[in-house]
């Protein structure tokens, strides 16, 4: 016996009330409970739906959905970091190594055009600020959004917050350097190298975030992501 939209909504509301807000986690649980209810309704058509949902929830595990959400969060987190670092690593192997060298070389040439190197690093800080602003806008627009929340994309937001913090540290490091250190070419090259690494890290994070979003759109074509 197929469940009605209202009965499916009842399961959805229950799982939501249990703290499962992410669409990708919730959809699977709703289907699981619905499958059980459909089977039991075949035998007992006058089954109390709400009571049965509570009973099945108790059977789920000793900790209800807590363990499931924790494991799912950990695995999503781990996978995102793994893929991002793999992508970042690829920038240090051919053919992408050419991109890394090209970015570093172009920025180094640009740095040489500046007589006062501090101004150049202030310019890099400006780029960092633009990236931070872009991330901030994305995170804040997501908070009030009516779009369905996906665990996979939520973790990506957290990763982008990490990049945000790293850029803030980079921008602060420009302030902390002494005037004398800006005349030392080696220090400038190290500082520039850190910026390029951060930029590539940001690139990798954005790339994986985009990939995840595409996968979600493909898996859930009728859901607003």
């Amino acid at each position: 016996m197929e469940l009605t939209k209202e009965q499916i909504q009842e399961i959805d509301n229950y799982i939501n009330a249990c703290g499962i807000k992410f669409y990708d986690v919730k959809a699977e649980l709703v289907d699981h409970f619905a499958s059980i209810l459909e089977e039991r309704l075949e035998i007992e058509p006058k089954l109390d739906i709400h009571k049965t949902i509570i009973e099945e929830h108790k059977k789920f595990s000793d900790q209800g959905f807590k363990k499931l959400l924790k494991t799912k969060t950990d695995t999503v987190h781990k996978r995102f970091y793994k893929l991002t670092f793999l992508h970042l690593k690829s920038f240090f192997k051919l053919p992408k190594l050419i991109i890394t060298i090209a970015i570093f070389y172009l920025l180094k040439e640009l740095m040489n055009l500046f007589e006062n190197k501090e101004h150049f690093f202030n310019l890099l800080s400006g780029i960092g600020l633009l990236i931070i602003a872009q991330l901030f806008i994305r995170v804040t627009t997501n908070i009030g959004s009516k779009k369905d929340k996906f665990l996979v994309l939520n973790k990506s937001d957290m990763f982008l917050n990490l990049i945000n913090s790293l850029f803030i540290i980079f921008n602060s490091s420009v302030t902390f350097r002494s005037d004398q250190s800006f005349t030392e070419n080696n220090y400038n090259l190290i500082h520039l190298g850190i910026f390029v690494l951060l930029l590539l890290f940001y690139w990798s994070g954005e790339y994986i975030f985009y990939q995840n979003k595409q996968t979600i759109k493909k898996q859930y074509p009728n859901v607003l992501v």
């Binding site: 059977k59 595990s61 363990k67 494991t71 799912k72 695995t75």
Partner: peptide, 13 residues
């Protein structure tokens, strides 16, 4: 179910 889904998610990851 409390053991199955975490196992499936791990294998997926």
């Amino acid at each position: 179910e409390g053991a199955l889904y975490p196992a499936l998610h791990k294998l997926e990851a």
